Amino acid sequence: MTKYRLNRLFNARSGRALDVAVDHGLFHEHSFISGIEDMAATVATLIEAGPDAIQLTLGQAPLLQSAPGPDKPRLVMRTDVANVYNDPLESPLHSIHVPDAIEVAVRLDAVAVCVNLLDLPGHPEVREQCIRSILALRRDAERYGMPLMIEPLVMQTKPGAGGYAVDGDTAKIVTLVRQARELGADLIKADPTDDIGDYHLVVQAAGPTPVLVRGGGRVDDRTLLERTRAVLEQGARGIVYGRNVIQHPDPAGITAALMAVVHDEASVDDALGLIGGTR
């Protein structure tokens, strides 16, 4: 079935999208909610900033969808919760999806749902849980015409710490992105590679499935914008950034800068000029 909802996610002129992820509170890690303690204020700020979409959980989505008017950002709904981001790690590790997530997403008028595909060293059972979730969600997503965004996350242990960090190894990312494609993803949300010049290989692995690039941890504005231009030039169809927007001193400014790069092919220097107090 054609996923008509995707017509509301991607900009008609550029064919690209900026999705701001604000689903961090779901994962029970205190450091993740820094800067988003007041979710009503955060969502109101983002609505005013005007990205293409905001990624929220079923509990926070009404903050966006209750806003009046037809021009607010679209909703991408997170459908699963995991404890793999905690430091120190809990035991046992898990990844669990909301059983009726697709029906909830339809009622909330989401344009897509998002689910993890986790690859953790020494814990293949977590990837199995993710695969089971994806297959269950995909069955309902097909029935309701809801686009399924799969988020392949290759992780590595943090040296000297108790948690996981992103692994930017190109071969590992390509392999997991390919699995997401094989599982029937309508969209793929993937990490940048350590060698950003390799990103065309990630896009190639996804085939015709649009790739949106994750933002990961906080970086300076120039690095973020340069990386954004680099992945777009290699075929990425957009970006899904969270902490680099919501923890920024000027969330509206960085959103404007990213939208200029994503939709208007703005240079990094021109985009930096849209940010107050550029770092």
Rank of each mutant, 00 (worst) to 15 (best):
G122R: 13
M149R: 06
K158I: 14
V115T: 10
D140M: 09
S95L: 09
D169W: 07
M155N: 10
L135Q: 14
A161V: 01
I131F: 00
S91K: 14
L137Q: 04
A141I: 00
E128H: 15
L120I: 15
V166P: 00
E103I: 06
E103D: 12
L153W: 11
M149E: 11
A101H: 08
A112R: 12
V104T: 12
P99F: 14
V104F: 12
L108F: 12
L89V: 01
E128F: 14
D119G: 02
P92T: 05
L137I: 04
G122C: 06
G163K: 02
I102A: 04
A110L: 14
S91F: 13
Y144E: 03
R143F: 03
V154T: 14
G163N: 02
A112Y: 13
A101S: 13
N116T: 04
L137F: 08
V113K: 05
E103W: 08
P92R: 11
E128V: 15
Q156G: 15
P99T: 15
D169M: 03
I134M: 01
A101G: 14
L148G: 02
L135Y: 07
C130R: 05
V115P: 00
S95H: 10
V111C: 13
D119H: 13
G168A: 02
I150C: 04
A101D: 09
V166K: 02
A101C: 07
V111I: 14
E90F: 13
G145T: 06
D100S: 11
Q129L: 14
A171D: 15
A171G: 11
A165I: 02
D169E: 11
P147W: 09
L118D: 02
R138D: 08
Y144L: 09
E142Y: 09
R138T: 05
I102P: 09
L135H: 06
G163M: 00
G122K: 12
V126D: 00
T157K: 15
V115G: 02
A105R: 09
L153R: 09
G168M: 04
G162R: 06
Y144R: 14
P159G: 03
H94G: 04
R127D: 00
V111P: 07
V115A: 10
V111Q: 10
L120F: 07
I102H: 06
E125V: 05
I131K: 08
L135D: 08
V126C: 00
E103N: 07
A141K: 02
P152W: 09
L108I: 07
Y164N: 01
M149Y: 08
E103Y: 07
I96F: 11
A112H: 11
Q129H: 13
D109N: 15
